[in-house]
């Protein structure tokens, strides 16, 4: 059975459109899949304590009272504590932090 050229053209157009469409769907799915997996992995990472996580945060616990964090997150606070400990050569266990506060712009401009 031979195929009229018009029918071949129709099939060709439909064919390339369908291939494009399927690949577009796959591309969107890959993007979604990557996002979902990244979100799940972040959730899992939050739930399970990372073994290599920096330990300075618990150091604040040594002081028997919570460090008050104002305008800053735990991660940044942990880094600051670690830096202070390193620079002052005082072990974290012996340091006591009352609060860590993010300075606003006016305070930063103090050396004017």
């Amino acid at each position: 059975m031979k195929m009229p050229i018009t029918e071949a053209l129709t099939i060709a157009v439909i064919g390339i459109c369908v291939v494009m469409m399927i690949l577009a769907i796959i591309a969107v799915l890959i993007i979604l899949l990557s996002k979902v997996i990244r979100a799940i992995e972040k959730l899992i990472a939050k739930k399970t304590p990372a073994p290599a996580a920096p330990q300075p945060v618990p150091a604040a616990v040594v002081t028997d009272r919570e460090v008050e964090l104002i305008g800053t997150d735990e991660k940044t606070a942990a880094v600051i504590m670690a830096i202070v400990s390193k620079k002052s050569d005082i072990p974290l266990e012996k340091l006591s932090f009352k609060s860590i506060r993010l300075m606003d712009n006016d305070e930063k401009g103090g050396n004017k």
Partner: peptide, 29 residues
């Protein structure tokens, strides 16, 4: 970079073009 998928599709034009050309030469379906 999933956007690259579209190039994979575009490079299949040859299949569909050749389908028309083969029909033109009178080959069976």
């Amino acid at each position: 970079n999933p956007k690259l998928m579209f190039f994979g599709a575009a490079a299949q034009f040859g299949i569909f073009f050749t389908l028309c050309a083969a029909s033109f030469f009178g080959f069976e379906l």
